[in-house]
């Protein structure tokens, strides 16, 4: 049985106070294992992004715990939490958030540079990750010269460059056409996912549901169902 990557227990998050209080996530519990490609799906406003932020150490829950490899991440100090995100979590943002003024390879090298690696060594390692995503020929170009799918792959290369245990994808196919979206997910499942890595994807794009091992459905801040790969 695969070991546990994340264990979220009774997570709740609300915004505002008094009459203006909005419950975004209401006492959610779930687990994710290494080697698993887990989707969190649901309509807009269902709380999936808030949940994703809480389990990745970005947004502090109002109640509940998040254990990553048996450590409660919300007991960490802010610098320790930043180190945790840098070393354990890889993010692929919906809008990629690549730096247009840096080259593609420099973008991929950012987590390595943040980990205090030497600049040239970081670029060398980043080139290898660009090779993994098939973009080694585009290393010297700025991201704006790449297509949406290529930018997505650069974002993936950046996310995996620091060799994180957990990868978080936020709406990875939102800006891509159906074919490119499917290709990205095929690539992720075949080349990025492995036995020592857990990938969590937040999406409402049903065209890519077929690639998930497990799907957690959310609505109104609660988990309303769970499906496993057939």
């Amino acid at each position: 049985m695969a070991s546990l990557a994340i264990k979220a227990t009774n997570l709740a998050k609300w915004f505002g106070e008094g009459d203006a209080r909005t419950m975004a996530v209401k006492s959610v519990s779930f687990e994710a294992s290494f080697g698993e490609l887990l989707y969190i799906v649901g309509p807009s406003g269902s709380g999936k992004t808030t949940l994703l932020s809480m389990i990745s150490g970005i947004l502090k829950p109002n109640s509940g715990t998040v254990l990553v490899e048996d450590r409660d991440i919300w007991m960490m100090e802010s610098d320790e939490l930043a180190d945790f995100r840098l070393n354990k979590i890889g993010f692929v943002f919906q809008d990629y958030h690549l730096f247009p003024r840096l080259t593609t390879v420099e973008n991929v090298a950012i987590p390595l540079i943040l980990k205090k690696n030497d600049w040239n060594q970081s670029l060398k390692v980043a080139s290898e990750y660009l090779k993994i995503v098939g973009l080694e020929q585009r290393a010297a170009l700025p991201p704006v010269k790449l297509s949406g799918g290529e930018q997505q792959r650069v974002a993936i290369a950046r996310a995996i460059a620091s060799r994180p245990d957990i990868l978080i994808f936020d709406e990875p196919t939102a800006s891509l056409d159906g074919d490119t979206g499917r290709k990205i997910l095929e690539f992720v499942r075949e080349h990025i996912l492995n036995e020592t890595r857990c990938i969590i994807i937040v999406t409402h794009d049903s065209r890519i549901f077929e690639y998930a091992h497990r799907i957690i459905r959310m609505e109104d801040g609660r988990i309303i169902g769970e499906e496993h790969e057939k």
Binding site: S78, A82, R85, L86, N87, D95, I110, L114, R158
Partner: peptide, 16 residues
């Protein structure tokens, strides 16, 4: 600003 936010999410510390 968003890029700085992304750096923060990735793991950059405030002082950096």
């Amino acid at each position: 600003l968003e890029k700085f936010g992304a750096l923060k999410a990735i793991g950059a510390k405030g002082h950096e």
